[in-house]
Design a protein around this nucleic acid. Structure first.
Length: 564
RNA sequence: CGGGGUAUGGCGCAGCCUGGUAGCGCAUCUGCUUUGGGAGCAGAGGGUCGUAGGUUCGAAUCCUGCUGCCCCGACCA
């Protein structure tokens, strides 16, 4: 490709509405252009990257035996009513009506459509297992689109759906996709982790998220210092490592006017937050509210809490009236002593002794409180987020927390959709059996952004070779003045093209500095400079995008350099 | 949806407080010079100051409503 015939628009100024580096660089280098909130045009450079990512994904999916198809973005409401998600999905589902007033949605995901296809097309266990995938534009009416293409309302996603008979076959499909995903991210040269994830309300099944590690990531990823345990924050299990001390103090009431938070409480009484007990009231299933108690320095894990039978789903904090009724005080003064509602304690909270908690009376707290003596022993569950230094639940080492960008998710759906929509096959006995499903997603456009988050410097983007918009660029110095440079650049360009290299020939009449700056901003991995001076010795200058200095090589070594 | 911010040529901003001819940098166009790290000089084009109303002789500027966008919280690839 000749740069003069390719649309390259770069800017020195950083757009003021771009917060994270990938967004800034994608805009500055002209990969994307914003059309509206969460809506982006993929400019020619951006599309090239996306196409390369798609090619890798497609290749690995095909290798894993998945077959590609393409489903419509517009989906009839009836299908979503069948699965129950027309109601459940909420405002993120962008709904539209046609001219006849019929309801549709713009597909945020395609379980319904694919299950409809499966139930019509798959009749026999002999056809299984089968894995369909597509690379397609998804629409989600995000509450808050941000970070450019990282969280946009319209984005490109690879989604695959497997159909199996029996859980063993589902597991095999899942494992196969796990391997394929690792291959995909390996080939893109990304630093990532596959982590255990919560499987949500469907329950039981396996779920794994693939996170590209980056400080700007929106998710917390937990991993063990030893062994290969890794999970997202929602899922990461806590191993209680403390045991309860003796009840050496007696319970007493202290005045704590104006104290509402654990931080204020520990400051007021000059004690550590670990000595305070935090009590949260949430809506319950059989009772109006349920008390959840945690050690003061610990954070409630809302997903874990939501899974409890006693707790209403979705998790809802009790409102002021509920609190008044249950605890006879305001939030900030609640404690578990004397409550007549279920009290569920995090394991670490249950091992506390002589602790401080709210007295269920505004402006008062209790000190020296002990389980079993001052109040009944609580139910014990894992309720909190892990913190750095917690024990690895697998028994080796401790846990660390890093930030991650979720770029992929593989998930065993089981029979959730196939059962609701009647997707069955006949087994070898001629009996109808509900198919087991798995679903597997990769956020293609998000991968591009994640790759930049992980690979950039002050000059701009540093694309991993496999997804760079161009593999190499030829920069002729002062080509307008030198026919020799022009001719040599042209020859090299033709040579690299013939060798199958995806090469950009920067034939724009730019001064060298501007040209280099552009190409570094755009992030092309390999640069070859041609000038009169170099030509005199039959040489070419080479610089890898990560190199701090250029090197000079013989003209004949250019291809070898690229093939290395 | 709650909280905060912002809206002025394509982009980044100043001007607003204290009302009186809309300005700067980048980008664009023309010419000359320049050509190994985002060139210099000279010239040119481009803005109903988000929108609707109000105050005023006069509003980018003061007041009110609305809208867009961005950032912080609950969702997801």
């Amino acid at each position: 490709m000749r740069a003069s015939q390719f649309h390259i628009r770069t800017t020195k100024e950083t757009p003021n509405d771009a917060e994270i580096v990938s967004h800034q660089l994608m805009i500055r280098a002209g990969f994307i252009r914003r059309l509206g909130s969460g809506l982006y045009t993929l400019m020619p450079l951006g599309l090239r990257v996306v196409r390369k990512i798609e090619a890798i994904v497609r290749d690995e999916m095909n290798s894993a035996g998945a077959v590609e198809l393409l489903m419509p973005s517009i989906q009839p409401a009836e299908l979503w009513e069948e699965s129950g998600r027309w109601e459940k999905f909420g405002p993120e589902l962008l709904r539209i009506q046609d001219r006849h007033g019929r309801d549709y949605c713009l597909g945020p995901t395609h379980e319904e459509v694919i299950t409809d296809i499966a139930r019509r097309d798959i009749k026999s266990y002999r056809q299984l297992p089968l894995n369909f995938y597509q690379i397609q534009t998804k629409v989600r009416d995000e509450v808050r689109p941000r970070f450019g293409v990282m969280r946009s309302r319209e984005f490109i996603m690879k989604d695959a759906y497997s159909f199996s008979l029996g859980e063993e076959s589902l597991q095999a499909c899942f494992d196969q996709m796990h391997t394929a995903y690792c291959n995909v991210f390996d080939r893109m040269g990304l630093e990532y982790r596959a982590v255990e994830a919560d499987s949500g309300s469907i329950g039981g099944a396996q779920s794994r998220e693939f996170h590209v590690l980056a400080d700007s990531g929106e998710d917390a990823v937990v991993y063990a210092t030893e062994g290969d345990y890794a999970a997202n924050m929602e899922k990461a299990a806590v191993v209680c490592q403390t045991s309860r001390g003796d009840a050496s103090e007696s319970m007493a009431t202290v005045d704590t006017p104006g104290v509402h938070t654990i931080a204020e409480l520990s400051a007021k009484l000059d004690i550590n937050e670990t000595q305070c007990l935090k009590t949260l009231l949430v809506k319950g299933t059989t009772t109006a509210v349920v008390a959840l108690v945690l050690r003061g320095d610990h954070q409630l894990n809302e997903v874990k809490a939501e899974h409890l039978d006693e707790v209403a789903s979705p998790l809802t904090m009790a409102d002021a009236n509920d609190i008044k009724t249950a605890a006879n005080c305001d939030a900030g003064s609640i404690g578990p002593v004397g409550l007549s509602i279920p009290v569920i304690a995090d394991a670490d909270a249950a091992t506390m002794s002589n602790f401080v908690c709210g007295a269920n009376e505004n402006g008062k707290h209790l000190t020296g409180v002990n389980w079993g003596r001052d109040l009944a022993e609580p139910q014990i569950r894992d309720l909190r987020n892990v913190i750095e230094g917690d024990l690895n639940p697998m028994g080796t080492g401790t846990l660390k927390i890093v930030r991650g960008i979720e770029v992929g998710h593989i998930f065993q759906l089981g029979s959730a959709y196939s059962e609701a929509m009647g997707a069955t096959v006949l087994d070898e006995n001629g009996k109808p059996q509900v198919m087991q499903m798995g679903c597997y997603g990769i956020g293609v456009t998000r991968v591009a952004a994640a790759a930049i988050e992980q690979n950039n410097d002050a000059q701009g983007i540093i694309w991993p070779e496999s997804i760079a918009p161009f593999e190499a660029v030829i920069c002729p110095v002062n080509m307008v003045k030198s026919e020799a440079v022009q001719a040599a650049a042209e020859v090299l360009y033709q040579e690299l093209k013939a060798a199958g290299i995806d090469v950009l020939f920067d034939d724009r009449p730019l001064r060298p500095g501007a040209m280099f700056a552009d190409m570094e901003l755009i992030g092309i991995p390999h640069r070859f400079v041609i000038s009169d001076k170099l030509l005199a010795n039959d040489e070419v200058e080479y610089r890898g995008r990560r190199d701090s200095e250029s090197s000079v090589l013989s003209r004949s070594d250019v291809l070898t350099k690229l093939r290395k």
